[in-house]
Computed example of a mutant assay.
Amino acid sequence: MRIAHVLNHTERLNGHVHAAVDLACAQAALGHEVSVVSRGGSFDALLKANGVETIQIDQRRRPLVALTAAVELTKLMRRFDIAHAHMMTSALLCYPACKIAGVPLVTTVHNAFERSSIAMAVGTRVIAVSAAVARLMKERGVPASRLRVVLNGTIGSRRHADLSEPPIALGSPSILSVGGLHPRKGIPDLLKAFEIVNATIHGARLHIVGEGPYGAQYRSIAAAMPCASSITFHGPQEDPRPWFKGADVFVFPSHAEPAGLVLSEACEAGCAIVASNVDGIPEMLDDGRAGILVPPKNPALLAKALIELLTTPNALAEGKKHALANRYRMSLDRVVRETLDVYNECLPAYVPGAVKV
């Protein structure tokens, strides 16, 4: 199959890009002819090393740039059997190009909490990264007949090929957070919760990996807390898995989260998990069997869950075991297989129940 993944860029900035890169590399490994169309970025070398063609088309939201991109995409799409858009601008630019070329367009909705995500409804099929995202898109008017759910999963990603890297020494008891430093991720809630935990559990430490526009503000908040010496901001890390391996508990206190990729990385490392019971997080954690779910925006209950996990005999070991068991649901192989099924639905020769391409 000739597949074109279309996105704004290939920089190491967000889950949209990571998911698209994972998918492209894995599809190429299966023998498909795969191209990534973007303005380029830091993942281009990895894509080329995995047999994925990179095609540079600037898709920024500037009138002349967008018009040029639309023309170039229209010429390009005739080369492919399927186009797969992962960002809103790319989807809107691909839609007329695919119509003219007669190529089905598949879109993936990553951030349904953004109202503008309705733009992804232009797809022949619209992939939601969790059932929660699918429900929201259906409420916004996307027909169920065009919606398909492919739950996120990263285990087996070519982005992290080396599994032998040793754990980061974080000590014990250690609590880890990995993600962007902005309000949606709930870092202020985590800081408040950790203040309670630190006052209860001697030696508890909080490690925060990631960066974002609110990084300076969150560091300032932490510096003014009584437990400031027990909180460390480590900045962004290219591969978070050694951090998961070195931590006792991974905390994911998001206020909104379609299906965070870091949850599958935490499961792969066998790190016990406490996360917000919101959006796609329960699905990623097998409805709470692979991690403890707490209400979002509630530092007191988050602290209570962490204290119980860290002080109840065998609770931490059980939490790690259940997270590790969930890794089979989080495989990239499953994501690729289910995505190819969606592609096949869009092709003229598709027969339900037949052997897939």
Rank of each mutant, 00 (worst) to 15 (best):
K185W: 10
G153T: 12
Y343M: 06
S177D: 09
F113D: 05
N198G: 15
A134K: 10
H182T: 03
L13G: 06
A193G: 06
H110L: 03
H18T: 15
I196Q: 07
R12M: 06
K192R: 15
V109P: 02
P166F: 12
I273T: 00
W243R: 09
A325R: 07
A247N: 01
L285Y: 03
L181A: 06
P258R: 04
L30V: 07
V34Y: 12
P295E: 03
K304Y: 08
Y218F: 15
N326P: 00
T74M: 10
S38N: 00
R327Y: 10
G15L: 00
G288Q: 06
D248Q: 02
A228H: 10
P352L: 04
R2I: 03
S42F: 10
I175W: 11
Q59L: 13
R62S: 13
L163F: 13
S164H: 14
E345R: 02
E345P: 09
R2M: 07
V71P: 01
D279E: 02
P236A: 08
I231G: 00
V335L: 06
A132L: 09
L23Q: 13
G215E: 13
P352F: 08
P143R: 11
S145T: 15
G291K: 06
Y214E: 08
I196D: 00
L136S: 10
I155F: 14
G179A: 00
S145K: 14
T108P: 04
R62I: 10
T232I: 01
V103Q: 03
T200A: 06
V129F: 01
P167W: 10
A19E: 00
G353H: 02
H86P: 05
A69E: 03
L310G: 02
A132F: 08
L73R: 01
M284D: 00
G260V: 04
N14V: 07
A199M: 05
R12C: 03
P242A: 00
